[in-house]
């Protein structure tokens, strides 16, 4: 058989083998998936601060350990440094310490940004419950609901504060403000920040988590 005919016969086999190799390579390199499935999977792997904050507000508030507000104030007056170091939470290197406090109180006045209250104890101190300007990390840090070391991107960690503050603004404060009036007796639980460099104990501001009119 002439060499040329032999070569012509081999050519289809050669092409078949190349096509087979390319086919096998592409089969493993390319795959198709419905866009909805893909988006759902992507969403699952993205941290959802709203869901995280929602779960906290809906399930954790009642059991959240709190210090009695009068004991808290008394302890701060007695030894601010020791009390904050032993009982407070703080984020990284800071002079800001955070606490969850609770108590019974009487409403003294309703102001633009706060409700002024007097604790239901002898020689009662005055405190302020924040109803406006609810921003920052006070709730997140006081409650210990999240640890920065668990978050690859600090923005996710900070978005928890944004989401939880939003829930307080939308779910906790409006129903309380619509009913509360001066002289009402209330129960409160909330988060508070104390700066050890500038304590300003007379003007502590509690970000509310639970507000009940008795």
């Amino acid at each position: 058989m002439p060499t040329e005919v032999k070569t012509n016969m081999k050519r289809p086999i050669k092409y078949f083998l190349i096509a087979l190799l390319v086919g096998v390579a592409l089969y493993n390199a390319v795959y198709f998936q419905p866009l909805d499935d893909r988006n759902a999977a992507k969403k699952k792997s993205v941290f959802d601060p709203d869901a995280f904050a929602g779960a906290f507000i809906e399930t954790k508030l009642k059991e959240l350990p709190a210090i009695k507000a009068d004991q808290f104030l008394e302890s701060l007056k007695q030894d601010l440094g020791q009390f904050t170091a032993e009982k407070g939470r703080k984020l990284g290197i800071s002079n800001d310490y955070y606490f969850i406090v609770e108590g019974n109180a009487r409403v003294l006045g309703i102001e633009e940004e706060n409700v002024r209250i007097s604790l239901d104890v002898e020689n009662a101190a005055e405190l302020r419950l924040a109803t406006e300007f609810i921003f920052g990390n006070t709730i997140r840090e006081a409650s210990g609901m999240a640890n920065i070391g668990d978050f690859q991107n600090t923005m996710d960690f900070n978005n928890i504060s944004v989401a939880v503050n939003e829930r307080v603004r939308s779910d906790i404060i409006p129903p309380f403000l619509s009913e509360v009036k001066e002289g009402d007796d209330i129960y409160f639980k909330g988060a508070v920040k104390v700066n050890t460099k500038k304590p300003n104990l007379e003007n502590l501001r509690i970000v509310p988590l639970i507000l009940e009119i008795k």
């Binding site: 984020l91 990284g92 290197i93 800071s94 800001d96 920065i148 070391g149 978050f151 600090t154």
Partner: peptide
């Protein structure tokens, strides 16, 4: 050591 240390 903490993985992240924020400073005020």
């Amino acid at each position: 050591m903490d993985r992240k240390m924020p400073i005020t």
